[in-house]
Simulated scan of single mutants.
Amino acid sequence: MPRALARLVEGLTRPAPHVPEQRRSNPGAVVDCAVYQGGDRRPGSLHFADAARTARRRRGSFVWLGLHEPDERTMAAVAQAFGLHELTAEQATTGGHRPGAEIVGEVTRLVLRTARYVEHEELTADSEVVDTGDVTVLVGENFVITVRHGAAGALRAVRAQLEARPQLLAEGPWAVAHAVCDRMVDLYLEVAAEVERDLEHVEETVFAPGRRMDIAHIYQLKRELVEFKRAVLPLGEPLQRLLDRGVVPVALHPYLVDVRGRLVRAVDRVAAFDDLLNSILQARLAQVSVDQNNDMRKIASWAAIAAAQTGIAGVYGMNFATMPELGWKYGYYVVLAVMALTAVLLHRRFKKVGWL
């Protein structure tokens, strides 16, 4: 056989070189993508489509795909790789959803609101005390997808802590869902502690003698508290629904019950904050009303003093031909003395009754 023909036959029969799956890069919205088996993370970084196929082939494994504000194109590719319903993918693309839980086919969609406290030197009407966002958790048989919107609620620490607990991670995708819920509730309690500190400062300022706080600051804090309350209060019902429907593995029930219990504490604290802030607001409004009454009293007192002088000067400015004391050489000085004495007596009287 000629040498050239032999090389051609060898090239046709030689197996194709293996192209590693890691060479295909993930979109920029992908924060992390990993395959877990038996509670351990498999080495390497896979494209989410390759990771989905790997999890389907390997029994007892699942994919955790973390996304941050994905666009429609990326979410459509994720939906195709994991078999998500198009409406589920569309809802995950946009943020601002209310906390809730629903089951679409074999996928459970859990929505939680994220929250973080924004440090500030001084409370102003334009400052943002509580920054909120949302995270959507899509749980399937062999995958869990977390889609986060907003700066609050980063999940890198959640992944690291969960990877350090392989026994819990071995429970599958719902272990991730529990860890995300646990992290969100922890954030609620942290934010509640910071808001309580702010409320104590506002309360001290409002009721301290000689100190006044701009009422716009209190309204701003109340607005932030309303937003925080919308994140915390509605979550209890979805968590209870997941426990009642039996979609959560039995081994994870105690963990989710613990999360629900701490959520109740957060809800109670937020409700107490709302009542306290309403009391502070009513007290500040009462102070404003009292201050306005005091100002009106002062204005009325000075107006009465000026009116007495105006009345005396008006009488002697009538230009009648015959008036008492017009020909008296001390009349001018006596009138000035009467005007000054009237002003002093009125001022002392108003001062005594607390109008000045």
Rank of each mutant, 00 (worst) to 15 (best):
V344G: 07
A76T: 14
V144K: 05
A49D: 14
L110M: 15
R98M: 05
P238G: 11
Y330V: 08
V63L: 11
G95M: 06
G83T: 08
A300T: 15
V144N: 02
T136Y: 01
A151I: 04
C33Y: 00
T74L: 02
A79E: 06
G11D: 13
F207L: 15
L169M: 11
V78P: 13
L199N: 03
D268H: 07
L345M: 06
L326T: 13
L235C: 08
I305F: 01
H347G: 01
A160C: 01
E86C: 03
P27C: 06
C33T: 08
G39L: 09
S279D: 12
G314K: 08
V206S: 04
E204Y: 00
V338I: 15
Q292P: 02
Y117T: 06
Y117M: 03
G150I: 00
D291E: 12
A89W: 02
S301N: 06
S127H: 09
A79L: 04
A34V: 08
L65I: 10
M296K: 08
A216D: 15
V107S: 11
V247L: 10
G11I: 04
A77P: 04
A216Q: 14
A6T: 12
L169D: 06
G28D: 15
E224A: 10
G327P: 03
H217E: 07
A152K: 06
H201L: 09
M339Y: 00
E196R: 11
V137A: 03
R41M: 07
L138D: 06
D32S: 15
R98G: 05
R3I: 14
R7T: 10
R241G: 09
E196F: 01
S127V: 14
L112Q: 09
R7D: 11
A160Q: 14
V232L: 10
F273C: 13
D275F: 00
E86R: 14
I280K: 02
L87I: 10
L12E: 14
R41K: 12
F207I: 12
V111F: 09
G311C: 14
A283C: 01
R59K: 12
V290D: 15
R23I: 13
A4E: 15
T342F: 03
P166G: 12
Y117W: 14
G83S: 07
A307K: 02
A51C: 11
V202I: 14
W328K: 03
D40T: 12
Y117S: 12
A29F: 03
M318C: 04
Q282P: 01
E203D: 12
N26S: 13
L169V: 06
I103P: 00
L225H: 10
E200W: 00
Y332Q: 06
M339Q: 05
H47G: 07
G153R: 05
V35E: 07
R348S: 01
R349H: 14
A340S: 11
G314V: 06
